[in-house]
């Protein structure tokens, strides 16, 4: 299991690194799919098969397909790739990269030194999908309703924003 975790984690980090450095948006999105699939393996190894399936179906499936459709509607060409190259000057990378590296080092230092102590009580048994469902529709029922309202709001906003009526133009 440990080997699977290291390999999947390495693939996820490498693919994410490719995502933020690609000039062609289509290539970047395909690397993002690879990153999500690797993360799904990590979730499975962590003992969450339901979340691994959701990661593949919703993230790598639905959300990435949404990205790809939007990209096709945008109709990017080699001109945009040249523009992207002009935007990605090396000096623009130095300061954000440095600051983020400092934050990352701090985060890992804090986790390595002052993490939580021993697990409280005995190690509980394996988590079943049933436990997740009971928790989701028991104590977290209000959260489920709020998520449904949020998704409805997203649906309405996406419909309103992409409508093409000329008299509705923002001006």
């Amino acid at each position: 299991m440990m080997v699977a975790f290291w390999i999947a984690g390495g693939v996820a980090v490498a693919a994410t690194g490719m995502v933020i450095t690609r000039k062609n948006a289509m290539h970047a999105l395909l690397y993002l799919v690879v990153s999500f699939l690797a993360l799904a393996v990590v979730f499975y190894v962590l003992g969450a098969p339901l979340i691994a399936a959701l990661e593949v179906i919703i993230y790598a499936g639905a959300i990435m397909v949404l990205f790809l459709f939007a990209l096709m509607l945008l109709g990017l060409s080699t001109r945009h790739e040249r523009q992207e190259r002009a935007w990605m000057r090396p000096q623009g990378w130095v300061l954000p990269g440095l600051l983020t590296a400092v934050l990352l080092a701090e985060l890992i230092y804090v986790m390595a030194s002052g993490g939580p102590g021993a697990a409280p009580g005995a190690a509980p048994g394996p988590l079943e999908v049933k436990d997740v469902g009971m928790s989701l529709f028991g104590p977290y029922l209000l959260g489920v309703e709020l998520a449904s309202i949020l998704l409805l709001a997203g649906l309405v906003a996406a419909h309103r924003l992409t409508r093409e009526d000329p008299e509705d133009e923002l001006q």
């Binding site: 969450a48 409280p120 190690a123």
Partner: peptide, 10 residues
Amino acid sequence: ARWGRADGQV
């Protein structure tokens, strides 16, 4: 997963 609770997955 560390504390064996379903809350993380929720």
